[in-house]
Design a protein around this nucleic acid. Structure first.
Length: 192
DNA sequence: CGCCGGATTTAA
DNA sequence: TAAATCCGGCGA
């Protein structure tokens, strides 16, 4: 299996890292890699547009887009300036700021699935269009910080993109922390 | 300029 | 299983 592509490696490296905004800290537990024009499921598949512009910029920036008319999706740009690739943050665990997260998620109590899903992650962090293109490596606003890498990594095909010709079992694009309870659809994943 | 299909979530 | 609800990209 080709697990060594640059986007795949970047995606795996993001597992365990922290997303920090204000008093809220999340630990990343699930990610999906998206390539450039060669990836039929990537927003960059038709080349550079106003929406996907952050994907073509320097790594370490955020790419946010609106989906299904109601959800914001947080991606981390990983490729060098001029290329296009990004990693979708699909799931996380709450490390700090639970009260704020519960309020934003309109939830009463914490469950393992509180931030299991890309829309949930962005909602927990209170993200919207204003964070599109944000530098995650600079202090202030939303920050990406080192964390504890998972001991077990699961891999499998991406979710909700059955149309992707890029997708096949031999080249996994989805990765998750095998020991996290914040991962949906674990059956579709296998240990690597 | 109008249409269509989503990298989804929630509740019934 | 459907409804909520919006916009980018593409064809006309």
């Amino acid at each position: 299996m080709n697990l060594q592509g640059p986007v795949q490696l970047a995606a795996r490296a993001l597992l365990g890292q922290r997303l920090v905004r204000g008093g809220v800290t999340l630990r990343i537990t699930e990610v999906e890699a998206y390539g450039g024009t060669e990836d039929s499921a990537s927003h960059a598949r038709h080349g550079r547009t106003a929406r996907n512009a952050p994907m073509w910029g320097p790594p370490g920036r955020a790419y946010l887009y609106f989906c299904y008319g109601m959800h914001w999706m947080l991606n981390v740009v990983t490729g060098p300036d001029g290329s296009s690739s990004a990693v979708l943050i699909r799931g996380a665990e709450v490390v700090a700021g639970l009260d704020t997260v519960l309020a934003r998620r309109k939830a009463v109590k914490a469950t393992p699935l509180l931030c299991a899903g890309p829309g949930k992650v962005a909602q927990a962090l209170g993200l919207d269009r204003s964070f599109d293109g944000h530098d995650l490596l600079a202090p202030g606003g939303l920050e990406l910080r080192p964390g504890s890498a998972p001991r077990i990594i699961l891999a499998g095909p991406r979710l909700g993109i059955g149309f992707a010709t890029t997708e096949d079992q031999a080249h996994p694009w989805r990765f998750a922390d095998g020991e996290s309870g914040a991962v949906l659809q674990k059956k579709a994943l296998s240990q690597i």
